[in-house]
């Protein structure tokens, strides 16, 4: 998720990989650490991870492209992950997404002010209080267009 990050450099990337605990010297935890530190996984980091873990570049690339959350470009400062799974659909998620697409950005897109990425997520575990979304790791429920807008304003203030 979006948070304050620093630009990737060879030296910083190397340092970060050294900090991985012994039993997390594995491809996925390494990629997650890089994304946590730098906001995304730059191309150069893929080769660096391969060397550090003594695996092939193809192995690292394979893991990087498998998981929905790993990304190869920087995200907007705010990520709105809207639940599109069944329980939220039953509570009005499809209508909420129509509103968000018209007023903020389509699912998978970025707002015109470049501040917000809208992504879909399959379940946030808030299925009795849907529709739900995760806004920079803050879970919000019983969403309406208005309450979503209010939660977004909070997130903008927190930047």
């Amino acid at each position: 998720m979006a948070h304050r990050v620093r630009p990737w450099t060879q030296a910083d990337g190397q340092e970060l990989l050294k900090l991985l605990p012994y039993d997390e010297r594995l491809i996925l935890p390494a990629l997650q650490a890089v994304q946590q530190g730098f906001g995304y996984v730059p191309k150069e980091a893929v080769a660096q991870i391969a060397v550090a873990l003594n695996v092939s570049v193809a192995d690292v690339h394979g893991v990087l492209t498998y998981y929905h959350e790993l990304r190869t470009t920087a995200s907007a400062p705010i990520i709105v992950a809207i639940c599109v799974a069944e329980a939220c659909q039953a509570a009005g998620a499809r209508e909420l997404i129509v509103h968000v697409s018209a007023n903020l950005a389509p699912v998978g897109g970025r707002s015109t002010d470049d501040q917000v990425d809208v992504v879909e997520v399959f379940c946030l575990g808030n299925c009795a209080l849907g529709p739900a979304a995760l806004i920079n790791e803050r879970l919000v429920g019983r969403l309406t267009p208005n309450t979503l807008e209010a939660a977004l304003s909070d997130a903008r203030v927190a930047l």
């Binding site: 594995l26 935890p29 997650q32 998981y67 929905h68 399959f122």
Partner: peptide, 22 residues
Amino acid sequence: GAGSYVCGEETAMLESLEGKRG
């Protein structure tokens, strides 16, 4: 995890715990 429904399947979860594709 990193956003993958099928990683809830036990063998896919084990693969993911080994740091691989799920």
